[in-house]
């Protein structure tokens, strides 16, 4: 195997596993609005940091962490308030900000467009190390606070009413979510990372009966989506985000078909 290809595959593998695991909670809690908000905030941060010649990852981190902290303080009863309308308005607003930045860019737009569509060239050994480290931290976090996270997943208001630490665990989880999305954003692309958050987990929920099986299957689907997507992108010279998301959407369609046939 080409040595240049190795960090790409390792970054893809860790990003897929990490985002697959995050997706189980984002999809399970029925809060796509919050997932969408964090991932798109990361994209806006990265694009404007790039416009002002700053580190895109730092910009993505700043905005995604701010969005995570804001979302953590949104009361449970309001998290789904007008979710569809809110998501549409937010998406339009973020898109407006992003394309404004693209229009304002006077020099080369290639790096900025890479931030939107994803680029495997961003996946160097440094990115692989950070993504791997964060994925391990996320896995350890979910294992350590397993009971608390399951209770929050079942009902956030019930978990907060009867659990002394539910609020703190939820806050930390969203911050980890913001961190992982910001770090993997450059490789996967800001426009499509949200789909990667949703598709593997939604596919796993369709075909698995137990919660542990959902977690393992979502991580596996995430791993497949990114490694196959990154490999396709690298070998065919296509946008990474598009390849990754098409693979994950394909997995979702296949599981839907499987579920329908099984019934």
């Amino acid at each position: 195997m080409d040595a240049y290809f190795l960090p790409i595959i390792i970054t893809g593998a860790f990003a897929g596993i990490g985002i697959g695991l995050l997706g189980v909670f984002i999809v399970g809690m029925r809060m796509p609005f919050i997932g969408s908000c964090i991932s798109h905030a990361a994209m806006v941060g990265a694009v404007y940091a790039s416009l002002w010649n700053l580190s895109p990852t730092a910009g993505a981190l700043l905005l995604s962490m701010s969005a995570s902290a804001g979302a953590a303080f949104l009361p449970p009863s309001r998290r789904n308030l007008d979710a569809n309308t809110g998501q549409a308005v937010l998406l339009a607003f973020m898109m407006g900000l992003v394309f404004l930045a693209v229009g304002l860019e006077q020099n080369s737009r290639s790096e900025m467009l890479s931030l939107l569509w994803g680029n495997v060239l961003f996946a160097d050994w440094g990115t692989a190390g950070i993504t791997g480290g964060l994925t391990i931290v996320l896995a350890a976090f979910t294992a350590l606070f397993n009971q608390e996270l399951k209770a929050i997943l079942f009902s956030r208001s019930l978990a907060e009413a009867t659990g002394p630490y539910a609020k703190a665990v939820y806050f930390c989880f969203l911050c980890l979510c913001g961190l992982i999305l910001a770090v993997t954003l450059k490789a996967v692309g800001g426009l499509l990372i949200f789909s990667l958050l949703v598709c593997p987990a939604a596919a796993a929920y369709q075909i698995c009966r137990g919660f542990r099986a959902v977690i393992l299957t979502s991580m596996l689907f995430g791993l497949l989506s990114t490694t196959v997507g990154f490999a396709l992108s690298y070998s065919l010279n296509l946008p990474t985000g598009a390849c990754t998301v098409l693979v994950s959407a394909g997995i979702f369609l296949l599981t839907s078909l499987f579920q329908r046939l099984a019934q």
Partner: peptide, 16 residues
């Protein structure tokens, strides 16, 4: 506290 919320407050669809 023991709390029993309204149906809309919990995610009954999860595979627990």
């Amino acid at each position: 506290i023991g709390y029993i919320p309204q149906q809309a407050e919990y995610n009954a669809h999860l595979p627990f």
